[in-house]
Amino acid sequence: MFNGLRIGVTGMQTSQKVMDNVADQIANSTTGGYKKKEVRFGDLLRNEISRSHAAVSENAEGASIGIGSRALVSKTNFTQGVLKPSESPFHMAIEGNGFFGVMTAAGDLLLTRNGAFSMSADGALTDGEGNGLVYESYVPAGSIGSYDGMSISENGVISGRNDRGEVIELGRVALFQPGAEDGLISLGENKYFLPEGMEMANSIDDAQGFGVIRHKHLEESNVDIAESMTEMILTQRAYQLNAKSITTADEMLEVINTII
């Protein structure tokens, strides 16, 4: 009977964690480059049922009963979101594999799929938090903003027109691909940190295996609102079911105590 209470409690706790994750998905459904996390139910320790404990059918092999559930965060889902057009000359999106690299003020390299970059006052390409976009520059630092008609090719080459109207190459955006995406550490704000010792390739040294850059596009979140709403309803029902099981177990204990 006490196991029944324990199972109901762990079920409610698990449902709450799943609901928190669903709420986070819905809240970030319009956040550029956001990648949803997958949370699933998992059994706690299972106890085998033998014929000395209960009447078990001869056809029931390996019969057992769980003692509760827990929430399992399997991994971040890095599937690509829909690409939408943008008017900004500094916006870009990756179609296929790869991440943009941004450098923090402390010198740490972070990875992101959010290509909503802008030109800072000192002529650097930065994200919304002021972290600098990692790219190979062919012109003096801070001068890229002085060129007109800036465009970015599929392989990341940045071009612009000089004072004589000539199109010249200004630099090349670097894309990065970790050895195992599941090993990336999420820092929030659509940014990921590479664990120490993990290998990482970049498109400057070898462009094979990377996606293409779409200039004047942004990648939307990969959250499916309909799917998230369905998951929310199912999780609510699971929460209610576990709450009901606790109520039922409590009523049964009350009856037993009355009899005794």
Rank of each mutant, 00 (worst) to 15 (best):
residue 135 Y to S: 03
residue 259 I to K: 08
residue 213 I to N: 03
residue 21 N to M: 08
residue 94 I to C: 03
residue 176 F to E: 06
residue 246 I to V: 14
residue 161 R to N: 13
residue 81 G to H: 01
residue 152 I to H: 00
residue 32 G to F: 14
residue 74 S to D: 09
residue 193 F to Y: 15
residue 113 R to C: 08
residue 127 D to L: 04
residue 8 G to E: 01
residue 103 M to Q: 08
residue 66 G to T: 08
residue 6 R to H: 15
residue 28 N to F: 04
residue 118 S to M: 10
residue 191 K to N: 14
residue 96 G to D: 02
residue 124 A to E: 15
residue 11 G to T: 05
residue 161 R to L: 11
residue 169 E to R: 10
residue 51 R to K: 12
residue 188 G to K: 10
residue 126 T to L: 10
residue 115 G to I: 03
residue 98 G to W: 01
residue 233 I to M: 12
residue 2 F to Q: 14
residue 140 P to Q: 02
residue 244 K to I: 11
residue 224 D to G: 05
residue 86 S to M: 01
residue 189 E to G: 11
residue 208 Q to W: 07
residue 161 R to F: 08
residue 4 G to H: 06
residue 90 F to M: 07
residue 106 A to S: 14
residue 192 Y to I: 10
residue 237 R to H: 07
residue 28 N to E: 10
residue 132 G to H: 13
residue 1 M to R: 08
residue 152 I to A: 04
residue 40 R to Q: 15
residue 185 I to Q: 14
residue 56 V to L: 11
residue 81 G to A: 01
residue 117 F to S: 05
residue 123 G to E: 06
residue 249 A to T: 15
residue 162 N to S: 03
residue 105 A to Y: 06
residue 98 G to E: 07
residue 162 N to Q: 06
residue 174 A to Y: 03
residue 38 E to A: 12
residue 250 D to A: 11
residue 165 G to I: 04
residue 90 F to W: 11
residue 248 T to K: 08
residue 172 R to L: 03
residue 83 L to K: 00
residue 218 L to D: 05
residue 218 L to F: 02
residue 238 A to K: 10
residue 92 M to P: 02
residue 120 S to L: 09
residue 142 G to M: 05
residue 252 M to E: 11
residue 198 M to E: 14
residue 142 G to H: 04
residue 253 L to R: 01
residue 178 P to T: 09
residue 43 D to L: 06
residue 14 T to Y: 05
residue 56 V to D: 01
residue 180 A to I: 10
residue 186 S to R: 12
residue 126 T to I: 14
residue 91 H to S: 09
residue 126 T to P: 05
residue 125 L to P: 00
residue 29 S to E: 15
residue 77 N to K: 00
residue 140 P to A: 12
residue 49 I to D: 02
residue 137 S to I: 08
residue 244 K to V: 09
residue 224 D to K: 02
residue 148 D to P: 06
residue 161 R to S: 12
residue 109 L to N: 08
residue 164 R to T: 12
residue 234 L to Y: 07
residue 171 G to Y: 02
residue 222 N to E: 06
residue 66 G to N: 00
residue 220 E to D: 11
residue 253 L to E: 03
residue 214 R to S: 09
residue 171 G to V: 01
residue 123 G to Q: 02
residue 43 D to R: 08
residue 171 G to Q: 02
residue 11 G to R: 00
residue 181 E to Q: 15
residue 127 D to Q: 07
residue 173 V to D: 00
residue 147 Y to F: 15
residue 40 R to N: 13
residue 177 Q to T: 08
residue 179 G to N: 09
residue 29 S to V: 14
residue 253 L to A: 01
residue 248 T to S: 13
residue 256 I to T: 13
residue 77 N to D: 13
residue 192 Y to D: 10
residue 101 G to D: 02
residue 50 S to Q: 09
residue 161 R to V: 08
residue 186 S to D: 15
residue 193 F to D: 14
residue 85 P to S: 05
residue 259 I to W: 04
residue 33 G to K: 04
residue 50 S to R: 09
residue 32 G to I: 13
residue 145 G to S: 04
residue 63 A to T: 09
residue 122 D to E: 15
residue 118 S to K: 10
residue 178 P to F: 06
residue 166 E to F: 01
residue 40 R to F: 12
residue 201 A to V: 13
residue 58 E to I: 10
residue 161 R to Q: 13
residue 216 K to W: 01
residue 138 Y to E: 09
residue 31 T to S: 14
residue 211 G to W: 07
residue 52 S to C: 03
residue 98 G to M: 02
residue 179 G to K: 07
residue 226 A to C: 03
residue 221 S to M: 00
residue 61 E to F: 12
residue 72 L to Y: 05
residue 125 L to V: 11
